[in-house]
Structure formats: C-alpha cells, structure tokens
Design a protein around this nucleic acid. Structure first.
Lengths: 205, 205
DNA sequence: GTCTATATCGGGATAGAC
DNA sequence: GTCTATCCCGATATAGAC
C-alpha cells in the first residue's frame, strides 16, 4: 500500500511527538500534549503506536537512519577526501535543519546513556562512524590527510553541529544578553566548521 | 561559620542529587531516589533546599560558576595565547572529570533551551565566552592566530569535550559493539583536542 | 535535625461505545 | 478509525511526632 499523500493522523502524531520529545525530553513529554499538538484524540496515539515508548523509538530510528544514509552517500560518492569532508559537514547540517528534533533528542540521549537506543540504532551509528573512517582512509591514501583517529575526528565535528543548533533554539526563546553571544548565520557556521576541519585534517591547509 | 569537614547531610544530598539529575534529567529524577542515594530521609531534602527545583538550581550555579572561574584564571594567567588554549582545554577536561555531572546536565539544558538557567547563570556563561575572546585577541596581537570568531571557536571546543565525557558514560554502561567505537584514553583525547585547536587557530601549525 | 505517614495531583494507559 | 470516561500508579510535597 502506497504512503498516503494526505497528512494522516499517524504522520501528524509522529511529527507532533518529535517536537514534543525534543522540547521536553522523553520523560517530561506528555501524551496529552502530543495529541493536542497533533490535533487528534489521545487514544489514537495508542491505536497507531501502542505506547509512548514505541512512538519514541520509531522517531529515533527514523532520525539516526536518515543521518546514516546521508553520511554513507557522501562516503561512497565521488570527489577527493577533502571535498567529502566538506560535503559531510554540509549533509549533517542539512539533516539537522530538516529534522529540527534531531539535535535535542540526540543530546538528551547521550546525556542519558542512550537508554532508548536499540541494537539497530547502535548499528546505524556505527555505520556513520565507518563512513567517516572510510573518508579518512581515502585522505591518507591520497597523501593529503594526517594520521588522525576517525572516532576523535568524528567527536570534533558532530558535537559542535548538534550544539550549534540547540544553542540557536536557546537564543530564539530568550531575550539576548547582548555582546558576543548573539546567534550566528548558518552559512557562517558551516564555513567555520569546514575551515576548522581542514585545519585539523590536512597536512598543509 | 566554617564549612564542616564532615560530610553532613546537606552535602550528601547535593552530591547524590547531582548524580541523579545527570543520569535521569530534571523531570525524571526522583526525590525518593536522591534521598536513598544520599542515605538520608526524603524530608531532609525539603528541609535543606526547599524544593527539587531549588536543589537543582544550586547544582547548576555551582557547576557553571566553577567552570567560569577556571576559564577566567587561564585567560588572566601568564603565557602565550597558544599555551592558554592548551591550558583552557585541559582546564575544561579537569572540571568535567571533577564534576562528572557537569557534561550530562549541560547537554540536557542545552537540549531543553536552558529552562533552569537564571540570569546569574547566563552571566557566568557569558564570562566564559569573554575569557575565550580575550585569549583570541591576545593571539591576534601576538600575530600567531588567524582572525577567528570567538563564539564559533568556543562552539568547536566545548561541545566535543562535553560529548566525549557523555559518550564514555554510554560505553561504560553497555557491552561494546566492537570495532572503531571503543572508548579512548583521556590523555589521547586531550592531545587530539589541543592539536585540533592549533590547526584551527594558528596561522602556521 | 530526623523520621513516618499521608495528602494531592498529573499522566500513561485502556475499556468500550460509535 | 475516532472519541469519552476512567483506572491506577508514581512522584512532589507537607504535617506533625520525636
């Protein structure tokens, strides 16, 4: 059966829940509020998803799977390793913008020791890391990259992106304190991250 | 009155609560569990702190204040800008190790739009940023640093440290999936971050 | 300062009509 | 597929004895 084009109640609940989980966290999120955001009756949530936990898991799998697919696509594509690093950063930023709930949920899961990640989710995260490792291996073969640790490299790129988006949300909901802390434009941030990654990875930047 | 050397019930509650909030988050943390961890009666929590929310706020202020003080100390100290960047990274890592609840609580607050940060806390966070800006300005005066954005620089350094520690906690509570994802030694991570920061900031690394 | 017992409330989940 | 009404448990908070 083909996916309906109309936004049916299931999809509405999915999106409403993603936003609710992102803003409040799994425990504090309310099924009442999710139903109200989705403009459906609360019982529909249990009809479509069975439980709050199952609904959450589906959102997490969708999110991690989408990121994994994008990174895989970049790693398997054409171009030099340096170009792929740029593309990788752009892809992560695009995903974070397309699914605004991705950074908050990911940050919360990391803080909580990822209690809601199942084996499939961990496998998808390892796939992301494998993609990064492939690009770094390519860079070493091409002679342009230093001998860097793939995991530590990943840990230098992904977290700033997650927290940049989370931070923009913080600032959006507050009166600014002025000075240095104002929000930055997205493209300025992307260029900074790409330049920063080149400084970190390339033998001669 | 001098601070008691014996670990009184107030201190026990403070530390137990810090760990509980770090692991479960503010909403999911239980006053029952905090009291049980601290091995005191639950009513003592309300006697000493008034409410769950006040207890949490005190932990947050202590945490952000300690980090702010360390960064300020580094910025105002002796040494070249490049040395201060190294010291800054070491100081953040030491703080995260000394207060293990710091990274998880900070990540959760960012994800939640920092709903529990009061004006004083925001001011302390701005002080951290000001310290970074001072060091970068020094580096530019010395002619060794590129013209980088202080905020974006901060956003490239702090998040990896927070998430590195959070990630170690994830791995510690799971059977490893093997391969590239195994935990890294702390000193290896520090050296990576320092090298990475030099690549990002220095004109000629 | 420390403890027991309890008031009170919100939220996840379900039964069952339509 | 959709809705109403309700069960039930866990969690914050407090009253009041010692």
């Amino acid at each position: 059966m083909a996916r309906r084009l109309t936004r049916d109640s299931r999809t509405a609940i999915f999106r409403a829940a993603a936003h609710e989980f992102a803003e409040r966290g799994y425990e504090a999120a309310g099924t009442d509020r999710i139903a109200s955001r989705a403009r459906v009756n609360k019982a529909m949530l249990y009809y479509h998803f069975g439980s709050k936990g199952e609904l959450y898991s589906e959102i997490v799998r969708d999110m991690v799977g989408a990121v994994g697919a994008r990174v895989r696509e970049v790693a398997d594509g054409q171009g030099s390793a340096a170009e792929k690093i740029d593309a990788w950063i752009s892809a992560l930023v695009e995903e974070a913008a397309a699914r605004p709930w991705f950074p908050p949920i990911m940050l919360r899961e990391l803080a909580a020791r990822a209690p809601h990640f199942d084996a499939a989710t961990f496998q998808m995260m390892n796939a992301v890391l494998a993609g990064v490792a492939d690009v770094i291996a390519q860079g070493k073969r091409e002679g342009t990259f230093r001998d860097v640790d793939p995991l530590l490299t990943h840990l230098s790129i992904m977290p700033p992106i997650l927290i940049f988006f989370a931070r923009q949300r913080v600032l959006a909901s507050r009166t600014l304190r002025g000075g240095l802390a104002e929000p930055r434009a997205l493209d300025q941030f992307v260029r900074h991250m790409q330049a920063s990654a080149r400084g970190m990875l390339l033998k001669q930047p």
